[in-house]
Amino acid sequence: MSVLATPIVDWSAMWKICVVALTAGAGVVVAFGFLLLGLQLANGARAGGFRLGGYALSAVCGVLCLGVIVVGVYAMTKKPKSKPAKPKAAALVIPAGPPVKLLASSRGS
């Protein structure tokens, strides 16, 4: 029964994934859009101030985009942030007995 008591969806992890995916996924698209906007402003500007402002906007957004990539690569090297496999977790193949007990349990495969 302990197997059946395991929730089907880990809503805690799911919620975190949604927040991070939305922040990074949509955020980087918006930041990249502002990067392009800044470049366009800078290229089209006649006054030095506007040109500098455009480049500054592009630079800040470029750093943000690069930051997201760096965090992404960091996440790859550190994954998975999951609990170690426990026999009580839900299994695909129940370790019912010999000779073969495949896919016994885990989170974060």
């Binding site: 995916a21 990074a24 698209v29 998975p80 609990k83």
Partner: peptide
């Protein structure tokens, strides 16, 4: 294309990091 790939990369990496592989 950029939005689809950015959203995909963010979702894949977040799901792996939080131990809920998709």
């Amino acid at each position: 294309g950029f939005a689809a790939e950015s959203a995909s990369a963010a979702t894949i990496l977040a799901s792996s990091y939080y131990g809920y592989p998709l």
